[in-house]
């Protein structure tokens, strides 16, 4: 498998680290225990197309949101995380 990092180009799997489902959003500080519990433990693990977090630790250290088919490993989209790169979001 190879991932095309938006900063580094097409790179081999060994440069990346996987962190599963990219959908859950960290709840606000006052969201309560149930919301945080869902965030921490309830993860999708789909046989099909998933949005996933991948870390380019062997390259630019960007976190990437990768859209991948877990059955075929086909990657249809790669986006940098909101805060990846040098620029501050909204700056």
């Amino acid at each position: 498998m190879r991932i095309t990092c938006p900063f580094c180009g097409e790179r081999e799997l060994g440069e990346f680290t996987y962190l599963g489902d990219a959908k859950p959003v960290r709840p606000a500080a006052d969201a309560g225990e149930d919301a945080v519990y869902d965030y921490v433990y309830l993860r999708d693990n789909i046989a099909g197309v998933m949005s996933e977090n991948w870390y380019h630790g062997g390259g630019c250290r960007a976190w990437l949101k990768v859209t991948r088919n877990t059955l075929t490993h086909e990657i249809s989209a790669v986006e940098p995380a909101a805060g990846a790169g040098a620029a501050k979001v909204g700056a």
Binding site: Y55, A82, G83, A84, V89
Partner: peptide, 16 residues
């Protein structure tokens, strides 16, 4: 380092 980058880029991108 990986964890802190995750916090910075994914969880708290609004922080400079």
């Amino acid at each position: 380092m990986q964890h802190l980058e995750f916090c910075r880029q994914v969880l708290f991108p609004e922080l400079d």
